[in-house]
């Protein structure tokens, strides 16, 4: 009974932290576009606040640069359980155009932290990012929350 109630609440309040680990910030502005009245992120109970200590979902955008190699893991460990990671854009998946000889990126992100969902595209459309968060977000958060309790 209590678990079921917690599930309902967890599913309808998803806090998102966006981390740009070294991309072109094209994905960042698509996440900002999600806040606009057309997509209206908050009607799904998703709230973007960029604070890792309160987040349920981490959005990673960008190939991992030198500075982020350790900081990304540190930020990941600061996020409370249950947590899920969504990699948006081609950069966290493969490094995109930056992953060439002589560059200073260390893609993919999955070498550093576990990734739950991947959205490809350079950048993906806002609706795709929203669909990805909604596809893995609520159920995984609820399920992992039950495991810990």
């Amino acid at each position: 009974m209590l678990d079921a109630l917690k599930d309902v609440i967890r599913k309808s309040s998803i806090h998102v932290c966006l981390i740009n680990t070294g991309g072109c910030n094209g994905c960042d502005i698509e996440v900002v576009a999600l806040l606009s009245p057309r997509y209206d992120l908050e009607q799904y109970g998703i709230y973007v606040h960029n604070n890792p200590r309160e987040a349920d979902v981490i959005l990673v955008a960008g190939a991992v640069t030198e500075q982020w190699r350790e900081k990304l893991q540190r930020i990941y460990s600061k996020v409370p359980e249950p947590k899920i990671v969504v990699a948006i854009g081609n950069c966290p998946l493969s490094g995109d155009v930056f992953n060439q000889e002589g560059s200073s990126v260390y893609a993919p992100v999955s070498d550093f932290i576990p990734v739950d969902a991947e959205v490809s595209g350079c950048p993906p459309r806002p609706s795709e990012i929203l669909a990805a968060i909604l596809a893995v977000g609520p159920d995984a958060i609820a399920a992992r929350g039950r495991q810990k309790v």
């Binding site: 740009n20 190939a63 930056f98 060439q100 002589g102 200073s104």
Partner: peptide
Amino acid sequence: YGYVHRGIERIMKGKTWQKGIYL
């Protein structure tokens, strides 16, 4: 600064413009 330094100028060297324009 320095959190999103990717080394674009360095990658671009030795490429044709068709590849450089994407970078």
